[in-house]
Nucleic acid binder design. Structure first.
Length: 292
DNA sequence: AAATCTGTCAACCGCCTAGCG
DNA sequence: CCGCTAGGCGGTTGACAGATT
């Protein structure tokens, strides 16, 4: 169903992603975030273009991406939002937690359009009449005065969104859980498993190997910043010391902010940052198997 | 059983826009 | 203001699986 792998004239791989490539991309972004999509594949040891990496992450690997069939509620919402917004797939996707613009676009072209062609009368039906129908999850757009209010009502009325899988489902298959912490834990378990077997998985090879490049550890200019899935960080040269600070995603500034999680000074070394320091993983509790 | 058709969806392509120097 | 670059978006492609002839 997917394009077979091939290599273009620039040596960039195209087509379907392998499990190994997925692991490399996932591991890198979870550690360092997507600070630069164009450079990321080089540092992550991938022979892919940045766009391809971004697409793979956004549509497939990103935590919280929901897979599988659309529920009736989701389908109704897509139809109503499309009536309001047109082919603004990314805007529509923003209103459906866990669904990507690509998935909604595919869904529309394959299912909804087909149905509209089969039942043209239904397509002409005013959205308000459908919204006030018997469906318990339907949204009455007629109660709002303009389209922006209508959309606002869609976004703020959380009970209209489909329910996440039950705990029973998640227990049976943890990958089904939409709880971000569950998904992060699941991925971390993979990372930790890979970390202990790094000889078999070069995305966790020791630092300074060509295959996997940690930019902030190589940079002797000692002024860099980035973000991981959990934290933001900076490393600034301060005369003979390196000032490193880590703070939460929600925080708006770095070390000067009171919400700063950690701030450390490390003696300057000629070769750059000491290679044992990991600004992200100092917050990972290996005993509890989660970030703290 | 083989050939053809149809549906699905991951991935690619090209364009647009914002940000920066 | 202009040109460049990166990121994002929507349209399209193409391979595969299942259905149909």
């Amino acid at each position: 169903m997917v394009r077979p792998p091939c290599v273009d004239s620039n040596g960039m791989k195209k087509g379907a992603w392998s499990e190994d490539e997925d692991n490399k991309l996932r591991a890198y972004i979870l550690r360092y975030g997507h600070w630069n999509w164009r450079l990321l594949p080089k540092y992550a040891g991938l022979k892919r273009c940045g766009k391809s990496c971004r697409l793979r992450w956004v549509n497939y690997l990103k935590p919280g991406v929901k897979r599988g069939n659309f529920t009736k509620e989701e389908e109704d919402l897509v139809i109503k939002l499309h009536a309001q917004l047109g082919n603004k797939w990314s805007t529509i996707a923003a209103k459906l937690p866990g669904r990507t613009d690509n998935e909604i676009k595919n869904f529309w072209h394959t299912r909804v359009e087909k149905r509209r062609k089969q039942y043209p009368a239904a397509a002409k039906k005013p959205i308000n009449s459908e919204a006030s129908s018997s469906s318990s999850s339907s949204i009455n757009l007629s109660e709002t005065t303009d389209s922006s209010e209508a959309i606002s009502s869609l976004t703020t009325t959380s009970q209209h969104f489909p329910s996440p899988p039950s705990h029973a489902d998640a227990d049976a298959d943890p990958s089904l859980s939409t709880n971000p912490q569950d998904q992060l834990d699941l991925m971390l378990s993979h990372i930790l498993a890979a970390d202990t077997n790094y000889e078999q998985n070069d995305c966790f090879a020791p630092l300074f190997e060509e295959e996997f490049y940690y930019p902030e550890f190589h940079n002797t200019e000692l002024s860099s910043s980035g973000s991981s899935y959990m934290n933001n960080w900076t490393a600034d040269d301060d005369d003979q010391m390196i000032h490193i600070s880590v703070w939460n995603e929600s925080s708006t500034s770095n070390s000067s902010n009171s919400e700063c999680e950690s701030s450390d000074y490390i003696p300057l070394q000629e070769e750059g940052l000491p290679n044992y320091y990991d600004p992200l993983f100092q917050y990972f509790d290996y005993d509890m198997n989660r970030f703290c």
